[in-house]
Amino acid sequence: MWWFTLAVGSALVFGLAGLFMKVSQMRRGSTTAMLLGLYASGTCGFWLQAAGSGGWTPFDYRIWIAGAVIGLGSAWGNLLFMKALDCGPASLTSPLTNSNIVLVVAMGAFFYEEAVSLAGIAGVVSLLAAVVLLSVKPGAASAEAGKRWFALVIAATLLFAFRNGGLKVTAEMGLDNASVLWSGYLLSFLWFAAATAAGSRRSSAGRSAAASFGSSSVRTGLAWGLAAGIGSYGGLQLYSAALLAGPSHLVAPIFATNSLVVALGSLLIFKEKLGPLQRVAFLLLMAGLALVRI
């Protein structure tokens, strides 16, 4: 059951990364700077891991192809996740985006012939019920924001499925996942470095780029992003190790409970308020994650 310990550890550590991202948002940190910091520290972490284990293979073209796909899912998934946090509560956004485990479980069942239990099926139904319930937004004014939030969450969920499911595929291919994540995080870092520089030039309005980079928003985002990157590196490294040791249809749902760290942290630290329908949806999401895990 070593894989179970690894999977639980991955959920706890990765959940801290999501919570740090929420803290950056609440302190008005720059989103692009935060993601730049995340992928900077994450890239360093995965490089040290891959090089230290002797598995670093930077000249294998498969590493770069896999890294591009997984990096796309991670970078754009995180970007849309942050935009969704601007429209809705983290206590719902994080658990809902983690419903991408349904796709990972389905991939394991159909392509790798991993059995799915009745409890797992019940969990999927619970998650889908929560999705339907969350789509109901009373009031004309809130309906517009609700639709935007829901669309962002769905898009982020699909992108995260590329990251989490992709690691299962690369593990089955025998690739070193630390190297895959290194290449994916490096490509994401380069993307957000360019985006941060471009945003800095647009907002400088006659000031130097250095002054813009030194703004409070950028400093806040970068600091919390660096911390989130450490959590992201640790969580994904544990997750990829758990995938090698255990079945993906169990490891992926356990990893998805990282949303509990974000949800509970947002409720306790930021005192987020949930309406009656949102409370029911939250319970359904938690129940679904728990059932799929069994």
Rank of each mutant, 00 (worst) to 15 (best):
A106Y: 08
L244G: 12
L19R: 03
T196Y: 07
W224V: 00
Y185N: 13
A119Q: 11
R148S: 05
A197L: 15
L35I: 06
A211S: 15
S53T: 11
W3K: 03
T157Y: 06
F110K: 04
Q278G: 14
K83G: 00
L167G: 13
W64Y: 10
F4C: 01
K137Q: 10
A51D: 05
S259P: 04
G88H: 12
F160M: 06
T32P: 00
G54W: 10
F4A: 12
S10V: 01
V13C: 01
G29I: 10
G246S: 07
M82D: 00
M173Q: 13
L267W: 07
F110W: 14
R27I: 00
V13G: 02
L127T: 01
Y233W: 11
A245D: 13
A290K: 03
E144T: 06
R27C: 04
A227P: 00
A193C: 08
G174L: 09
L167C: 11
G246V: 03
V8P: 01
G67L: 07
S232D: 08
S126Q: 03
L19P: 01
A11C: 00
G221A: 11
L36W: 10
A143Q: 08
S91C: 12
S204V: 06
G275M: 01
S240Y: 01
V169M: 09
A171G: 11
L274I: 08
I70H: 06
G206Y: 08
I121T: 11
M26T: 08
S216F: 15
G184M: 09
F162V: 05
L190V: 13
L289T: 07
